[in-house]
Design a protein around this nucleic acid. Structure first.
Lengths: 339, 339
DNA sequence: ATCAGGATTGGTAACGTTACCAATCTCAAG
DNA sequence: CTTGAGATTGGTAACGTTACCAATCCTGAT
């Protein structure tokens, strides 16, 4: 099927003959017009406008050494506003550098990530920006990527020494937990991800450091580290709060867990259930946190900035050959905002 | 600069000589292996694995009739979770069809949209999905787009008759407003966008229809239709609620306005200001709406589904030449969820 | 008027791939 | 042992573009 689907794409040749010049003159004009007589440039541009010609970027990038102007971006979950903002930041900086982004969603699926990376490379991307899943890293090794620079965001990959942008997970979690301890809490629950998730590990470490430093023992019965979605987080919070010795405060290591915990707390208040109304410290901001029925301290950060930084690291490698090849890490600060 | 940046991309020729066959045999093997001896296929695949070869998709799509496998997607604001979900829906369906998406953010800027569309076409996209800005549509006319199918989402463009996916803005707003009227409210404020924004117009129309049908006059002093962001929405809500004859309920036509209104209401409650605590009907859901200090009725919908539908419309055109060329419109239902 | 030097223009080849065609090989039937 | 049909393999050209080189044009100095 599909032998002819309307007029096919115009070529430089057609523009040339329409303007009465050679293809080379058209090419030069489009490339900036160096060494082309102004009147010919005018004729060429007129023909381009008249015919509605678009230069074929794929053919262009076929010539050796020519960059494609594409950046492959794979993130784990576009539905999460955090990653939406991240993607926006990347897109902004890419646009400033005249590049486009090829976007893929991995859904935390390792196989999908491999597939995306292969495809991106097949499409000749100039660089890759990745929020890696936690799986195997063989497909990200330099020898597999050839000369395509890679920047990791949010998470590291064990054994992969490349440019990375991170949040100050440990510091933020530490300060957030300290603020609870300062307020007199000693039974502080933890909701988060398991250690195999990079940020899950780091954020737990911050919590742990603060508790240890203040000599407050960590009670594993009020530490839940395996919730990926709001539903599971809500259940974990319920189990914690149903206990005799329920926590008086909860440290939530990410947005999903915070929402889940607040749902459960809201339910208990509505239903008039007894027990503490725990204070919350949330790693990740969310809208209207100030209107919640319990005080929410927010460990906030700018995902868009994280995206911008990732893109900046990437383009610095692309645009500067003399750059020290050693991997760089940027760790963005987070703020702790009291209610 | 950049004469040699490490090893350049591998070619099919190198794979061929490594496997001891001709480039054509490699090409055929990669294309599925029809009419290639199994042992040669094996040798080829081994060479591909060993060398880490990726087929150059750009060169591939250079041949006439070959689709690029790319879809250009331009949305207005990736930071908005609504559009993040939309993009996710598009990406999912594109992936199911073996396509990748080129993503651009217009930021409601007309010039940027034009630029993105040009670039997308230059990169030989097989189709375009657009949340259009409200400006001029000349660059979206069929004669400018050649044979590249276009699908619009969320909004129509005046004078452009193409496949479109919309929400049932009018019906949802009508039903939401009716629910306020049913609850006995007669002073119902409106927060939304101006008429030149497609959804702004439609959502106002639903409000208007409900009010008119019930014989409740619309008071222009409590209709604010020019807020794009939370800040402005908050100010508009404040102005409304500061009035002697403040509304007892507010219809908010979008997420940004809802958040703004709730911020202002929260402030008034915290500060103990007098005046009504208006009920809210919000077009667009947001998390934890059930925990708000005033009842919030949510007109909900699935942005991800909207994205999926847009992609489905597009791929139906790409994959079925015999399709009736008449433009189709899909209007997705919305739900009205009482608190 | 002549000529060097630079500006301008155009022709050719090559980028990596695959459609098309021609060449070779296999094998069963005569 | 020949024949021919079908399977398999490889060579060539072309997709749209631009780097490189050669050809031509123009300018001002002699």
């Amino acid at each position: 099927m599909s032998t002819t689907r309307g007029a096919r794409q115009l070529t430089i040749k057609e523009v040339a003959s329409h303007a009465g010049v050679s293809p080379m003159t058209v090419s030069r004009t489009l490339a900036g017009g160096r060494n082309v007589r102004p009147d010919l440039q005018e004729r060429v541009m007129a023909a381009v406008r008249e015919l509605g010609y678009y230069r074929n970027e794929n053919a262009r990038s076929l010539r050796p050494g020519q960059p494609s102007g594409l950046v492959g971006v794979a993130i784990t979950n576009l539905a999460n506003p955090y990653y939406g903002n991240f993607a926006l930041g990347v897109e902004e900086v890419a646009a400033e550098h005249g590049r486009r982004i090829l976007l893929g969603n991995t859904g935390e699926d390792d196989a999908r990530e491999r597939q995306l990376v292969s495809d991106f490379i097949g499409r000749q991307v100039d660089g890759l920006i990745l929020v890696p899943t936690s799986g195997d890293a063989a497909h990200l090794r330099p020898e597999r990527l050839g000369d395509v620079p890679l920047v990791l965001a949010s998470r590291r990959v064990p054994g992969l020494d490349v440019d990375t942008v991170l949040l100050d997970d440990v510091g933020g979690s530490y300060r957030g937990t300290i603020s609870l301890l300062d307020a007199g809490h000693t039974r502080i629950g933890f909701l988060g991800n398991r250690s195999s998730v990079f940020t899950g590990e780091r954020r737990y470490r911050g919590y742990e450091q603060a508790m240890t430093e203040r000599g407050v023992p960590i009670d594993p019965t009020i530490v839940a580290r395996d919730q990926q979605d709001v539903e599971a987080a809500s259940r974990a919070a319920r189990a914690m709060l149903d206990r005799e010795d329920a926590p008086t405060a909860i440290f939530s290591a990410n947005n999903r867990n915070t929402i889940g915990a607040l749902r459960e707390i809201g339910r208990r208040i509505r239903d008039g259930l007894p027990g503490p109304r725990p204070a919350i410290v949330s790693f990740d901001d969310f809208e209207l946190s100030e209107l919640m029925p319990v005080p929410v301290t927010v460990i906030d950060h700018d995902a868009r900035l994280l995206g911008r930084e990732a893109a900046i690291l990437l383009f610095s490698r692309l645009d500067d050959d003399s750059l020290d090849p050693a991997a760089r890490t940027v760790e963005l600060p987070v703020t702790v905002e009291h209610p």
